Amino acid sequence: MWTRSSNTMLGTVFNVSIRYCKNIKIPDKSISDLELTRHRKKPPGGNRYLTDSKLLYLFNAWDNVQWNADQEKAAAEKVELNSTVTFSEDRLKDLEENANKHWDAFYDIHQNRFFKDRHWLFTEFPELAPDFNSAPVRVFPDGESKQSTPDRIKHNDEDAHNSKRYIFEIGCGVGNTIFPILQYSQDPNLFIYGCDFSSKAIEIMKQNELYDTKRCEVFVLDATSSDWQVPFAENSLDIIVLIFVLSAIDPTKMTNVIEHIYKYLRPGGLVVFRDYGRYDLAQLRFKKGRCISDNFYARGDNTMVYFFTQEEISNLFKNVGFVEEQNLIDRRLQVNRGKMLTMYRVWIQAKYRKP
């Protein structure tokens, strides 16, 4: 969703004109409060909220932006327009059966340059590196779950400090999650496993100088398969990471993936999840002819992506037996101040624990 500061169908609800970009007069208190958020590594309480439309172009991004009914309706209309399925049966079969080849081609082109390391992980999921105490604390929208630091506190206990801790990332790509965890956590008892559908991605990751076989191991795995061949036992993992991965899987196969996750987590183990939400900018940008099924699309490079609702995520995990600890929608307004564009991102973030 993007606009040049208008209130057109895909427009911003703020109706801000270009004159606000130059020589705007803003109360000193507004500036002083917002200056605390100047850097994206924000201090506790430093989330950036847009309370005055005159401030729209002061920063590159705003947090927890709420939509009104007109904006929601406009997004739904846009999705309806791009939802006509035009793929032939042969084309759909190719997308599914050759999915690994399409991802291999993606990584063959982009290598390790496309995705950025996820240094924001430790604000959203402090459980991943409980010994890293410098990460800013997550500030949630009113009414959302605030359970964000239980494992960070637990890590100070002697038993937790002396026990082995295992993390497994599904869809690790070229290491944009695993390498930051290894960088920020110095816990000698931490070991991280990672898998990816793409053998090319695994090859690239193993060539990285940060890849340390004493602290991590990665391998090729089709997470949708009925039988996982993995180097760890059932009921053995402390945390499973599922970040922007489930959306790349055919919706009919998602339950199978969640069932395997449940099987390999230890009792009390945690799933941390973040992925695309319904009406995200990426969904609204699709043109006609890219839709595979409802809210499921093929990109131009033949990789696939699904856009979730909170209810869908909740049902997927709870139906398998998980207990929901967090399920929130993260709406962020990103601003291109040079081109005077506003872009709305929608992500679902959740945590589920195995009883």
Results as ranks from 00 to 15, higher is better:
Leu210Lys: 15
Ser148Ala: 15
Asp212Val: 08
Asn162Tyr: 03
Lys22Glu: 11
Lys29Arg: 13
Tyr107Thr: 05
Leu58Ala: 12
Ser314Ile: 14
Ala248Val: 12
Thr224Met: 09
Pro44Thr: 06
Ser236His: 02
Cys21Asp: 02
Glu234Asp: 13
Asp63Pro: 06
Glu169Cys: 08
Asn100Ile: 03
Asp94Gly: 04
Gln66His: 14
His39Leu: 13
Gly194Phe: 03
Pro141Phe: 00
Phe132Thr: 09
Phe140Ser: 09
Cys172Met: 07
Phe87Asp: 04
Lys42Trp: 14
Ile261Asn: 00
Asp222Val: 02
Phe197Asp: 01
Pro136His: 14
Phe122Trp: 05
Ile329Glu: 15
Phe296Arg: 05
Phe132Ser: 05
Val139Gln: 12
Asn235Glu: 12
Glu89Pro: 00
Lys214Cys: 04
Pro126Thr: 03
Lys287Asn: 12
Gly45Ser: 08
Gln186Cys: 04
Arg165Val: 10
Phe114His: 10
Asp212Gly: 04
Leu328Glu: 06
Phe273Lys: 01
Trp62Val: 11
Thr37Val: 07
Arg285Ser: 11
Leu316Ile: 03
Asn256Phe: 00
Asn176Lys: 10
Val245Pro: 00
Lys164Phe: 11
Phe286Leu: 05
Arg4Lys: 02
Phe286Ile: 01
Leu58Val: 10
Phe232Ser: 00
Val79Leu: 04
Glu259Asp: 12
Asp250Trp: 03
Phe219Ser: 11
Pro188Ile: 05
Leu284Val: 01
Tyr20Leu: 00
Tyr57Gly: 02
Arg290Glu: 03
Asp159Pro: 00
Asp275His: 12
Asp70Leu: 13
Lys214Tyr: 05
Glu324Val: 10
